[in-house]
Simulated assay, not measured.
Amino acid sequence: MRDWSHAEHVRATGVEIGRMADVLRDADMSTPVRTCPGWNLAELTTHLGGLHRWVAAMVRDLAERPYDRNGTDPGLPADPGGYPAWLGEGAGPLSEALLSQDPQAPMWSWGGERRVGFWSRRQLHEAVVHRVDAELALGLPVSIDEDVAADGVEEFLEVLPYVRWNPGVAELRGAGETISLQADTGAGWVVTLDPDRFHHQRSLQPGTVTVRTTTSADLLLVLWGRRSADDYAVEGDAGLLGWWREHTGI
């Protein structure tokens, strides 16, 4: 695994937004997105493109509190056929806003890091997961760069404690049980359930339950609920893994 800079996260975000815009070009925007129940491609696209514009505005202003996402006009085209291009156009202003600020500059975020750098990383992995959603909806092959995916696994584990809108996260406690996430590429993490919290560390050790996949991309999709853990090797207490997955929806 490698460590990422703020600028690298921003550049990779732009690449991922462009990839999703390409995936959506000429697609039927009414296609259901099975990994986001109740949404179609149009709703998935407007969610992500609106998010980019919302984040860009807050980063530009170093906002101390969240802006009203419904309070500004994102410039959405009247014709859904224009949504893919509109999505792609949002990458430029988002990148410019993020690169214009010191990644350590304080601002509001919903995670543990109240600084600009939270948003460059969060927007990368938001774009990756929703690009996968679009590809799965259209029956296209899914591919995620290994370095991006490994960073995404760690980012998921870092932000999970702050997912206040899922009450199940507050129940992720235990008596030292461990969930081990291992990829054949050499990336690995172990989550430990303590009586008052859960925490994670990079580790290649097995756990109370261990999930073994080919790549970090597989692990990322399992964590985000885009793939079933049943598709991969599970060793140990499968019930613990099922309980973890039930409580970790973001």
Rank of each mutant, 00 (worst) to 15 (best):
E135F: 02
L124F: 04
Q123M: 15
A137L: 07
D61R: 12
R2W: 07
D184V: 00
A27W: 07
A175Q: 15
A42G: 12
R19K: 13
W54R: 00
L51V: 15
H247A: 12
I179E: 01
G207D: 09
V59K: 04
F156D: 10
P93E: 00
V190S: 12
L138K: 04
E89F: 01
L240N: 04
D102N: 14
R121Q: 14
N166F: 08
M20H: 05
V10L: 09
T185P: 06
S120Y: 05
G249Y: 13
L181S: 07
M58K: 00
T210W: 07
L193V: 05
P93D: 00
P32W: 02
E246A: 15
D73G: 07
S95F: 01
A229R: 13
R227L: 13
L157W: 09
V209R: 09
W108C: 03
V116Q: 09
P32T: 03
H130S: 07
A149L: 01
G88T: 06
R202D: 10
G152N: 02
H6L: 03
D230P: 00
L241M: 10
W119M: 05
G242A: 15
E43N: 10
S143M: 10
D73M: 05
D26N: 11
D231L: 14
T208V: 03
N40L: 02
E246T: 12
H47G: 08
E64V: 12
T72I: 10
S143N: 12
E89S: 13
T215N: 04
L241V: 02
T35K: 01
V10Q: 06
V55W: 07
E16Q: 14
L240Y: 09
G112K: 02
G82Y: 11
G236F: 05
A21S: 14
T185F: 08
D28E: 13
A7L: 10
F156L: 07
R115I: 00
V234A: 07
V129G: 04
H52G: 08
P103E: 08
A187K: 11
G75S: 05
R34L: 15
S100M: 01
A134M: 06
